[in-house]
Computed example of a mutant assay.
Amino acid sequence: MEQPKQTQSEAAAQYVLQKVQPALLGLMDGSVSTLAPLFAAAGLTHQTHKAFFVGLAASLGAGISMGLAEALSDDGLVTGRGTPLSRGLITGFATALGGMLHTLPFLIDNLQAALHMAYAVVVVELFAIAYIRFKFMKSALWSTIFQVIVGGGIVFLLGIWLGTLGVS
């Protein structure tokens, strides 16, 4: 028996459910979950290369963890969310990418320059996440900007604060 063709609206909804939502989940997690360890390491060590490796470890670890969690969450048959492998790869890659974007500035030897560049990258990441939520998830723009900035800001400030605790 031949299955009926999808309408353009149904295809768009399926694309959002199977591709955009796992990528957005990963970007949000990677961008936010790596902030605290990265900025705490920078504050505690005052060494960019050590902060870079903490950020690299946090990004890759989070990417693997989120990819597995998404792939193992369901088989996609009941929910229509797509294949576990596809969702897991998309989520894992997006998580690692979200964490690495603000980690890369720590390849710069100058701590203050690396921190300022990383701060700017974090702001761009959070606004990009808010825009993606607005565009694909049909969230209200100002509401989603507020939610993403407040959530990311709390974790960011936590990392900065923890990075000052070990300083004597």
Rank of each mutant, 00 (worst) to 15 (best):
L72M: 10
L107I: 05
T45F: 05
S31Q: 08
L44Q: 11
A57R: 05
S33F: 06
E10R: 07
A96N: 05
T91W: 06
A62Y: 14
S139Y: 15
F136Q: 05
Q21G: 08
A113R: 09
A11M: 15
V78N: 13
T91M: 12
L89P: 09
E2L: 04
L165C: 13
I132T: 14
A23C: 14
G55R: 00
F156P: 07
A57S: 14
A40N: 09
S168I: 03
A94C: 12
S143H: 15
G61W: 08
S143I: 15
S9G: 12
T83W: 01
S33I: 03
T7G: 06
G63P: 14
A41V: 08
F52T: 08
S9P: 12
A41N: 12
D74M: 09
F39V: 05
G98H: 03
L72E: 05
G159A: 08
G159H: 02
M66I: 14
L68K: 09
G30L: 00
G153R: 00
V78Y: 15
G166S: 06
I160M: 07
F134M: 04
A36N: 00
V32M: 02
P37H: 03
G99N: 06
S139H: 15
V122P: 02
L24S: 05
Q147C: 08
T48L: 01
L56G: 06
Q8W: 11
T164M: 13
L44N: 09
Y15S: 10
P4L: 14
K138T: 02
F136P: 13
M28P: 03
A113T: 11
